[in-house]
Design a protein around this nucleic acid. Structure first.
Lengths: 124, 124
DNA sequence: CAGAATCCCCTACGATACTG
DNA sequence: CAGTATCGTAGGGGATTCTG
């Protein structure tokens, strides 16, 4: 008897994935890794505005979820590479679609916002 | 001269859409409306765990972004219907893909987590 | 270089109670 | 019914400093 996962069910673990995909840093990091592995510092540069704390924290989460691999090279100075697992790669399509949707519709959304605001701001 | 929107750029407004799509309540609500318009209370029931505050707040945000329409019927008792705009509908594909990915890979993620935890918990 | 640790703020969110 | 208003709290996340 198979239990049907349902993201919409509150108690379903699959809903937890919403948190991960919903996390901006996660999305940004996975997207940044789409071109191949990167080092810690390289990631920090490609994901503008991320603090070392959040970068590490997010990477740990992604690693724990099996989306990202962490490879430590025993050299000096230290070198750590982060790359996508096949599971992580399976997310790429989603991230791409997300990116595409966002870039395609941001104009409409901005317009809608302005319209809404001017419509609402009437009552001072 | 066209400015290329880029979700990955920190200052790009399209990145704000990440916040919207990243918001669990937004995703859940849009998903719930995929079958057609719903009233406030119906939404509250279909989105388990949402408080009236967050429901209203999220709906306002979605309305402002032009993703959702809010129709007030001048009847007693009051009746307000929420439905997707065409822009909102354009999100449905993404939400569906998200749902599908989540439900399809939740198993792998749970496994990965257990593996990671047992691997890490070694050092007490 | 890659991160761990600490401090601290602030606001997002939940719970509850009230109203047109 | 469809919300607002108020309060309270946990913790997410930024800045900074230190270390193997």
């Amino acid at each position: 008897m198979q239990v049907e996962p349902d993201v919409f069910a509150k108690d379903c673990p699959s809903r937890q994935l919403l948190d991960r995909i919903g996390d901006a840093w996660s999305v940004l990091i996975v997207g940044s890794l789409s071109g191949g592995s990167l080092r810690y510092t390289e990631l920090a540069q490609r994901v503008p505005g991320v603090s070392p704390k959040m970068l590490t924290q997010t990477l740990r989460g992604l690693e724990r979820d099996g989306l990202v691999t962490r490879t430590v090279h025993a050299v000096v100075p230290p070198r750590v590479d982060y790359g996508l697992t096949s599971l992580g790669c399976s997310l790429l399509g989603l991230v791409g679609a997300l990116k595409e949707w966002a870039e395609q519709h941001i104009g409409d959304v901005v317009e809608a916002r302005e319209a809404y605001d001017s419509r609402t701001a009437v009552k001072v």
